[in-house]
Structure formats: structure tokens, C-alpha cells
Design a protein around this nucleic acid. Sequence first.
DNA 1: ATAAATAAATGTCTAATTAACGTTTATTTA
DNA 2: TAAATAAACGTTAATTAGACATTTATTTAT
Lengths: 235, 235
Amino acid sequence: MADYTNETKMLLAVDCIIFGFDGENLKILLIKRGFEPEKGKWSLMGGFIQENESLDEAANKILLQLTGLDGVYLEQLQAFGDPQRDPKDRIVSVAYFALIDIHKYETQLNDRYHAEWFLVNEMPKLVFDHGNMVEAAKQKIRYKAALHPLLFELLPRKFTIPQLQSLYEGVYNTRIDNRNFIRKLTSTGLLIKLEEKDKSNSKKGAFYFKLDKKKYKAKFQAFLNFIPNPENLIS
Amino acid sequence: MADYTNETKMLLAVDCIIFGFDGENLKILLIKRGFEPEKGKWSLMGGFIQENESLDEAANKILLQLTGLDGVYLEQLQAFGDPQRDPKDRIVSVAYFALIDIHKYETQLNDRYHAEWFLVNEMPKLVFDHGNMVEAAKQKIRYKAALHPLLFELLPRKFTIPQLQSLYEGVYNTRIDNRNFIRKLTSTGLLIKLEEKDKSNSKKGAFYFKLDKKKYKAKFQAFLNFIPNPENLIS
DNA sequence: ATAAATAAATGTCTAATTAACGTTTATTTA
DNA sequence: TAAATAAACGTTAATTAGACATTTATTTAT
């Protein structure tokens, strides 16, 4: 260890778990792998880290390539480094998860990667350890969103309370009492009610809300406890 | 990206932030770097990841080398990959943090590394981005220990309530009401009271407790909320 | 014009938790 | 036996969380 020069160098990758919400269900963006090994199998979007880029930069680049989106919520999840995780070579991969507004997603840009949205609960088997990465990401989101207003990153600029609630219900796979849910939400002061209604799902229509960005930033780190009895949910 | 063969390989390291508690203060174990660059400066204990070992294995190995300890609490913190973080070469480092019972620490084993315990609040400047790593680790511990009984990993088999309290007070740099603290603790059912007293700090003496290992494992993931108003503390 | 259908929006009460607060107790030493 | 020391202990008030059912706005069909 007295010198660097005869240490083994390795391939370093980033892989992105990209979540989206279509207004009803939580989805994940996968691609058909275009090269060996495991060509043709479903996979996370990833790439090798270049000499001159940081991990965050690499992850953002990949996200931009696949979705055409810039400035999305992106967080490092974990490094995965089992020596056998890729059968062809030793590759350590730093996994990132992204939360995007699915409506902003540009289909043209990604078509060359054969990208497709899947319901998180109906995902195909993934290559290598990508299934583990997705599991870890789901757990992390569940954990974090129970305490912080993370899931707003998945919503479009204006959204309705029923949408928001079904998002939480989807992420935690549970039913939430809507009166308590609304009370909790409004007490955060994060929501601004708009005039307009979304009438696509009911005759009465549901009011649109938007996020108070300032308060969102200010309160993001606070422990807001969005989920009742979280210890019964987080496994 | 169609093939691996002409991608750049890099050096991959792990660095360990090792925390200990001496019964009064939170401490961190540092070493004097024995090789260039930055030889003679204070540093985290780290090493390069070998061809055939996983990240966790590499971190455990380093921990064993430095402390002589096996089976300690070790958790991946984050990968650090700024291209300039090491001036000599591109090295991506996966940081781990460890919580050890300082009393089990064997001084003989580490002497060849010139290891030394420092109060976390009176640390020397560290090489490279190790200062950032320590900051991130401190934040993570603060975050996690507010919700999970993590800090017991720092304590010896038997410990007193006042010790436990000063541990929490040290980690959060705050005063905690001892009646509320005890009530919260005992309500978790994690503590088993022993007959024996520790009389080193008072005439009355403080009862020793030990951890109920079974309940500890069972409840570790539950949200126990050890810290009052955590949102006022976590920065 | 009215009734039926649909999903959205709303309020109250009870139980549980959290937070603030000062006094008594066990033991040693003078 | 008095003084000193730190440990151990309990109560109340305020806040928050959780359980629970009805009314409202609007559209569509009759």
C-alpha cells in the first residue's frame, strides 16, 4: 500500500433507477440492453464513468441521454461491488435513483435505447444485480418519502389531491385515510390551491394544487412524517 | 458504449470513518499517512479494493487491520468520485463508517499505522476530501440515530443511563431532559437493568444496563424517534 | 326539469405522544 | 451525623395522530 502504481484498476459504472408516476401508478424506466453480455435483456440505464467526470456528472449525463431531461431529482443510492456482479469483467457500479415527472419525458430521444416504462410491481427480470439495485432504491424511497416531501418530484407542476394520495398509496402499497392525509398535507403549508379543476376523473372535478417551492426547499430536511405508522410498512 | 474493452479503468478505494465513544465524548480514529502524496498528514484509514473482494469485504479488512476488530457495525456511506479528489491519480473512493466499542480497541495492532483518537470536534485537517467524508458520516449518524437505536453499537456490553445520555448529547451537541430521555428509552424495551452499579462517577452510583439483543435486532428498523424535535437539530 | 350517479371535499372526537418542569434518594466523605 | 454528589423518579398540559361517515359539486340520463 506504499504506492499507487501497482494497484489494480477497475471499470467503474453508474446505473440509474428512474422512477416516474403516470397519475395512477409508480413506474420504472428500463432499456433493452444493446450489447453483450446479456444483449436483448432488460436493464437499467447505465454507462462507464469517464476519466474527467464526477459520479454525479456521469449520472446526470446518462439521465439526459435516456430521457432528454435536465435538472431532475437525482440521488446517489449505493455502490455495488460484488466481484461477480458482471460475468465479463470486474465492474463496480455506483447506483443513482432519479424521480422524474413522467409527462416531461421525451419519447423521441430515448427510442434508440428501446426504453420502456414498467409498473414497478410488474417488472421483467433484469440483468446482473440490477434487480437488487431496484429493490434498494424502492426501499430508500419508501424510507425517505415517509419523512420528507420527496414524492413531489414525481408530479407535474399542477396536480390534484387524489393524484397525490394514489401516489403515496402506490409507493407504500397501502390505503390511506383521505381526511387524515389531507390534514397532514395542508398542515405542512407546502400546497397552493389553484382555481382550476381537473375533471378527467370525476363529475365534480378535483382542484389542482401546485407546490410552494420556497417552503418545499426550506422544509425538505424536516421530519414531516407523511406516513401513519411507518414502522408497520418499512420492511 | 458497445463494448467494455476500450473504457478507462480507475483506481478504487475504500475509506473508513471510525467512530468510538469513551464514555464521555465521541471520537474518531485517524492515522498519519505513511506514503506520498500528503505523507505525514492525518487521514482516514483506507486502502485499494482488490480484484477479488467486494466493497464490504474491503472495508472490513481495513477495519480489522487498523483496530484488530471483527464483526463491528459497518455501513456504506457514499462513493466519492470528484476527478480532482486525489491530486496524484483518479481514485474513486467508497466511504464506510464504523461504530466501535472503544474499549475493545487494541492499541498494539494499530501502532504501526500511527493511529490516534481525536475528539470529533477537535479534529486536525485531513488529506484530500476526507474532511467531507467525516462531515457526511456525522450527518448520517445524526440522521439515523434520531430514528434507530444505532448508538448502542458504540457502547460496551454494560453501560449506564448517564453514559447513554451523554452519548446522545455529544452526537447532537445538545442537552436532553433526562426524565423524558429515560422514559423514551425504557419504553423501547431495549434495556435490561443489571444489579451492579458503576460508582466511578458518583457516590450514589449508576446502575448498569445491557442491551436486549433480540429486541434490538427486531426493532432496529422501526422509527423510534429518540431525539425530541429532530428537525431543529439536523442541518 | 329532475333524478341518479360519481368522485371530491369536509369535521369531530378519542387516544396517544410529546414536552416542560423540581424533588427525592442512595451513598460516600468529612 | 451532616454535607456533598450525581442518579432516579412522576405529573400535568399541549400537541399530534388516528378512527370514523356525510355532504357537495357536477354531469348524464330520464
